[in-house]
């Protein structure tokens, strides 16, 4: 077998396997650390896996008012999320889907999943589900530009819309990569991705009160295996976004050679980066209170403005701001 194909295949399988394997772990890790910060004991660190096993052993029940859309939505959401996961660098910056749209594809794969999720939430006719899906759509219109604009700043800076290529170029700059443009766009991406991951200033994942639910509210009518898949794709999305931020923040290590030892080392470094970023997210969640629904716009507006300033400064490059 050709050595290059073998390498590519190994990397692809490790990449996908890591994402699938660690998504529940990161979710439980965030819950555990958050509980410890609030002085509680919290669920065990493997609770995510226990939950998934429990859901997959249960029977799936759906309302008889629902159509095929309701039953295929979990699979569509899961596959779009996983496809978005192939576009980002994790422990390696090898590209798996070359020349297929880069960041735009990345953002709109999430958009596709969200479209199916919100449409299927309207199907059973539950008022809580419909309310949650209309809120989710409101968030989506705000999140998409705010997610895209800082990534466009990186496109402006490095002339490529491929995230893996961007991270490679960032890694080659060393410590000099922390320019004002970069810092502003990272802050903007971070705020927008908190909204995309449905975390606290925007949406409370741990709420048990249907009126305040946004993301959870759409899953109210799902049960059993379908609910398991929906939860799993939510956690997968969270891990994907965290790895994107981690790799943009610390693009330190790219694998030098292709041996088993270097692969293991790269995976360990990657996991450390992800754990650092998730701990930081927990820290933010602990000190910040959830905002009112209509104040979400203001926070995302701030993030939008930071990315516009970053764009202005990056276009201004070489004209005396010294960026």
């Amino acid at each position: 077998m050709n050595y290059n194909i073998l390498k590519h295949l190994t990397l692809l399988l490790t990449h996908t396997g890591l994402l699938l394997l660690f998504a529940p772990f990161i979710h439980s890790y965030i819950k555990k650390i958050k509980a410890m910060m609030q002085g509680r004991i919290g669920p065990p660190i493997l609770q995510g896996y226990y939950d998934l096993i429990k859901y997959f052993h249960k029977e799936t029940v759906a309302s008889n008012q629902t159509s095929w859309l309701f039953s295929i939505t979990p699979f569509i959401v899961f596959s779009t999320t996983l496809a978005a996961g192939l576009l980002i660098p994790t422990f390696t910056s090898e590209e798996f889907i070359v020349s297929l749209g880069g960041i735009i594809l990345f953002i709109y794969l999430f958009g596709l999943g969200r479209f199916f999720m919100t449409s299927s939430a309207c199907e059973p006719g539950s008022s809580f589900c419909s309310m949650a899906s209309s809120r989710e759509m409101m968030f989506a219109t705000l999140i998409e530009p705010v997610m895209l604009l800082p990534l466009f700043v990186f496109v402006c800076m490095y002339g490529t819309n491929n995230i893996c290529e961007t991270v490679n170029q960032l890694a080659s700059k060393g410590v000099a990569l922390y320019t004002p443009t970069y810092i502003l766009s990272i802050i903007a991406i971070f705020i927008a991705s908190l909204a995309e991951m449905c975390r606290i200033p925007f949406d409370n994942q741990e709420t048990h009160y249907e009126l305040t639910m946004v993301h959870e509210g759409m899953l109210l009518e799902y049960s059993g295996k379908q609910l398991g898949i929906m939860f799993f794709s939510g956690w997968l999305k969270q891990l994907i976004i965290i790895s994107l931020i981690a790799n943009l923040l610390f693009p330190l290590y790219t694998m030098p050679g292709f041996t088993f030892a270097s692969l293991c080392f790269a995976v360990i470094i990657y996991l450390l980066k992800v754990l650092i970023v998730s701990t930081f997210i927990v820290f933010i969640e602990t000190i910040v209170a959830k905002v009112r629904l209509f104040r979400v716009r203001d926070i995302l507006m701030t993030s939008f403005i930071m990315s516009i300033i970053a764009l202005v400064i990056s276009v201004y490059k070489g004209k005396g701001l010294g960026v």
Binding site: T179, P180, T181, I183, L184, D298, M301, T302, I305, M306, I309, I313, G320, L321, G322, V323
Partner: peptide, 23 residues
């Protein structure tokens, strides 16, 4: 150190803070 790059962070801070102030 390159004084231009040192002061460019500060210029960024000035710009950001004034726009945040207006909102």
């Amino acid at each position: 150190h390159n004084h231009e790059s040192l002061s460019s962070y500060l210029v960024g801070v000035v710009l950001l803070v004034s726009i945040l102030m207006s909102g």
